[in-house]
Write a protein that binds this DNA or RNA. Structure first.
Lengths: 340, 340
DNA sequence: TTGAAAGCGCTAACAT
DNA sequence: ATGTTAGCGCTTTCAA
């Protein structure tokens, strides 16, 4: 058993109140007494019990972060952004992985509240929990910020990137380069893919390019690291059996990398014979061969902004509902070429 | 403010004890009473205060995990392994990033104890804190497991991979393939690099191959994601200015990927003109072009084994000091070729 | 500057 | 089956 404040008090020959005062350094204590207490603390190797402290003191200086999976760089980079900002302010993180399951998401959030976190950040919160009112309900109980994820009509704090803008920029770039046959790789069942596909159709129309449903390629697995392999298989098949595009837009870099691998396998030169553009700018896009042109979501920055907003909410520096929108930008690397 | 157990008791017209009993489901409560209480809980949206619960109940069902950085797949894969195992047993994780700083490591570990974690896992704990007795001291206060990191003469629980075996296997493979000029890429100041270099020299000697210090390439940055870029620069320079090896052994896959990129840049074909072998088997090695031959450390498995050991320690199913050693194995992919 | 005592929200004997 | 009461380890009035 760890020693308690009473042990320290006894050893130092003072009251527990005094010990508490030197621990928290919030009331005057004479030099002599302080020294005695500090020595007792050192000797006993006393570490105050946070649970007991937390019972009276309000803030726990703890934040809950809920993601799908740490091994996916998209999430880990956001976590790093959150952590770097919040740790400077003395917060520590509970890390929860939902594995993309709606009930797990709910279970974790309740557990976080039970554990008295000062606030919660959910990355890519599920559409279900957005729409069924769960997230809104949570918002009323604890400072709560959602990063990306579904947000139409949902009265929660959001930090999101303007996906439409990003996809638009990518597609216009491809079209400027002279591409007309642009395949679109997406995952299934996620709102963000639906949005992107809508933009895809819109841009084609605006550019007077025909829409061909054969160019919509849907990958069954889209957020774990298996996405790469899975996309590779799919793209290989389509590149062989369907009408060949001159360019591919992929809804995330994992898929883009999978497409790139497929091209390599089929001996299709990128970008000479096939241009590929990704989305997110996880570091994988940077270290690919060739480095992938992509849309930079600035995940670390998103994490930082979300952390900042959450702490402001916690400290009541901010009230009301916030929606912070970051504008993503195209990063031109070497996976796209001009047809003109 | 969240409602308390007293609010629930009042609303349900019972004593707080009864409420506690239905929450914990550990004493008989009549169907009728239970129903009343459950309704009150639902209506008030009551979530018990973990801090107050924790004051009496012993285990917090919380584990502290200390790593260098989440964005490095080596760490995130281990974290995933730990989490997958421990979450099944009802544990939640504090995630702490030391950013490779010895004092931060100490600060976090103390904070974790203060927060009443049931146990701590440190990944790649610093040599300093191993040698100065800090880790041993912590071991006496709380169930404590170190993954990899320095472990000679340190009386702590360890889950480690047998690095010597792995490096040996890699090097022998290269030598069997007919390589005589093998460059060795390492980081600086880490015990694990020293071990690997020792094995490198030993194997050369055993194989009657000359040792050439020009083939020891030391990368200044070796554990953040910048390693790749940094190695790329270094290898490019050495490939141009030093005696050219026919094969490269890299102490981790990040370096191996950097070497691969450098080769690409210089138009050196891998594996035809240069064989590269990595270490760790993070997924980057798998998705490289060509896929990298590497030593599989099975990080996820390491995480699982560490989680298992820690829970056994927590539940007193195990006593004493454990050192679990996993044997890494060579994974042959496509980045090495025979010279014979 | 210090100490006594109440109480944070809950659990766990002990009664009934 | 349910309630009363004494803490868990600490912070914080209040008094001295």
């Amino acid at each position: 058993m760890n020693p308690t404040i009473a042990d320290v008090a006894q050893k130092a020959g003072v009251s527990i109140t005094t010990v508490s005062r030197v621990i928290n350094n919030n009331y005057p204590v004479s030099q002599k007494t302080r020294k005695k207490v500090e020595e007792a603390i050192k000797e006993l190797d006393f570490i105050p019990n946070y649970m007991a402290q937390g019972l009276m003191k309000k803030p726990s200086h703890t934040i809950g972060v809920l993601i799908v999976s740490v091994t996916n760089p998209y999430f880990s980079e956001i976590v790093e952004g959150i952590d770097q900002y919040t740790k400077r302010h003395g917060y520590i993180l509970f890390l929860c992985q939902s594995e993309d399951r709606v009930e797990v998401e709910q279970r974790y959030i309740k557990e976080l509240i039970q554990r008295q976190v000062d606030g919660i950040i959910v990355v890519d919160g599920s559409k279900e929990n957005s729409q069924n009112g769960f997230f809104e309900k949570i918002s009323s109980k604890v400072p709560f910020v959602i990063i990306n994820g579904y947000h139409e009509e949902v009265r929660c704090n959001f930090v999101i990137s303007d996906q439409e803008k990003g996809v638009e920029e990518a597609l216009r770039y491809l079209i400027e380069l002279g591409h007309k046959d642009i395949a679109f790789i997406r995952g299934k069942e996620y709102h963000s893919y639906d949005i992107k596909e809508k933009v895809y159709k819109k841009i084609l129309k605006e550019s007077n390019l025909p829409y061909n449903s054969e160019f919509i390629w849907t990958v069954p697995i889209a957020s774990s690291m298996n996405t790469i392999l899975c996309t590779e298989l799919l793209v290989e098949k389509y590149l062989l059996n369907r009408k060949k595009p001159t360019a591919i837009f992929a809804c995330n870099d994992l898929m883009a990398k999978g497409a790139l691998n497929a091209a390599h396998k089929l001996n299709i030169k990128v970008p000479e014979q096939l241009s590929i553009i990704g989305h997110d700018n996880i570091y994988i896009s940077e270290i690919s061969e060739p480095p992938l042109t992509t849309i930079d979501l600035e995940m670390k920055q998103i994490g930082k902004v979300a952390g900042e907003l959450l702490l402001d909410l916690i400290n009541k520096d901010k009230e009301g509902i916030y929606k912070k929108v970051l504008i993503p930008h195209l990063i031109k690397r070497s996976s796209c070429t001009s047809l003109l």
